[in-house]
Design a protein around this nucleic acid. Structure first.
Length: 264
DNA sequence: ATGGCGTACACCGTACGA
C-alpha cells in the first residue's frame, strides 16, 4: 500500500498535476490532499471517479480544504475534531478529514501556518496542535495502524531547514512549534521519511519567490507519521520533487510511503 | 528589506500563504 500526501495549493489550479502524478509518477493507493481551496460542490470529482477512485472531502471555499483519495472505499469518515462542536473555532477551518481504508486509519491534515511567531494566528496554530494530540488520545491508540499525513507547517529538526540559523526563531521552525509537533508525535508516531533518510537537504516546500526551489532553499514541513505497528511495515518513503519542476507547480512536493503486510 | 510569487475573489486591489 502506497500512501502519499500533497499540499496542492488549489485543486482546481493543480488538477492536471494531481492526475499526472497519479497516472505517471506514483499510483498511490491513498492520496492525502491539502489546500483544496474549493467547497465540496465545486470539487472536480469526475476525473477521480473515472479512475475508480474514492473520495473523502472536507472542502472549503477560498482557503484550506482537505481530502483523502483512495483506490478502495473510505469508511467511517469524520471531518475536523469530532469531539468539539461544529462551530468551535478549531472546527471553523477545514483542516482535518479522517477515514479508514486498506485497513489503516488515515488522517489528512493541514495544520495552520501561524503567520508570525507571537501573532494571533500563531496562538491558533499552537492550540490546533494541542487539540490534535487530544484528538489522538481520545479516539486512538498507538498500537493500532494509523497514519497522520499532511502539511504540518513545522520543520522538526535543523536538518529539515536549508538555513537553520536564519530560521531558528521564525514561524515554521521556532522552538515552540517544534515542541508542539513533538507533543503530537509523542502520542506514538514515527516519521516515515526519516526512518529511511538520515540526510539533510531534503525538503517538501520551497518559496515561489527568489527561485528558492532551483537553489534548493526549502523546508521539510510535510510529513507522514505512522504508529509503530504500521511504521515497522514501511519499506520505503521519499519526497518526489519532480512535480515541483512542472509548469505552474504547487509550492509543495508530494511525500510518499510504502507499507507492506496486513492492513497495508 | 514584508518584497519577492501564486491563488482566490472581486475588481482592476486585497487577503493569505510559508
Amino acid at each position: 500500500m502506497v500512501l502519499a500526501t500533497w499540499n496542492v495549493n488549489s485543486i482546481r489550479a493543480r488538477l492536471d498535476h494531481v492526475l499526472r502524478y497519479l497516472d505517471e509518477r506514483r499510483p498511490a493507493d491513498v492520496l492525502c490532499l491539502q489546500e483544496l481551496k474549493v467547497d465540496d460542490a465545486s470539487f472536480p470529482r469526475e476525473p477521480f471517479e473515472e479512475r475508480g477512485l474514492h473520495l473523502a472531502l472536507a472542502g472549503q471555499r477560498t482557503y484550506n480544504g482537505v481530502a483523502i483519495v483512495a483506490t478502495a472505499e473510505i469508511r467511517d469518515v469524520t471531518i475536523g475534531f469530532p469531539h468539539l462542536p461544529g462551530d468551535h473555532p478549531l472546527n471553523a477551518q477545514r483542516r482535518l478529514v479522517a477515514g479508514t481504508v486498506h485497513g489503516v486509519r488515515v488522517i489528512s491534515a493541514y495544520l495552520p501556518n501561524g503567520e508570525a511567531v507571537g501573532s494571533e494566528k500563531f496562538a491558533y496554530k499552537l492550540r490546533f496542535f494541542r487539540e490534535l494530540r487530544a484528538y489522538l488520545d481520545r479516539f486512538h491508540r498507538p498500537d493500532e495502524p494509523l497514519v497522520l499525513a499532511g502539511d504540518f507547517n513545522v520543520a522538526p529538526e535543523p536538518r529539515d531547514v536549508y538555513d537553520p540559523g536564519a530560521w531558528e526563531d521564525r514561524v515554521l521552525f521556532s522552538p515552540e512549534e517544534r515542541r508542539a509537533l513533538a507533543h503530537v508525535s509523542a502520542f506514538g508516531l514515527v516519521d516515515c521519511f526519516r526512518r529511511h533518510h538520515p540526510e539533510g537537504g531534503r525538503y517538501s516546500w520551497w518559496d515561489y519567490r527568489g527561485g528558492a526551489f532551483w537553489k534548493n532553499q526549502g523546508l521539510r514541513i510535510d510529513h507522514i507519521l505512522a504508529t509503530p505497528p504500521l511504521a515497522e511495515r514501511c519499506v520505503a518513503s521519499d519526497i518526489d520533487v519532480s512535480p515541483r519542476r512542472w509548469k505552474r507547480p504547487s509550492d509543495h512536493a508530494p511525500v510518499w510511503a510504502e507499507f507492506v503486510g496486513p492492513g497495508g
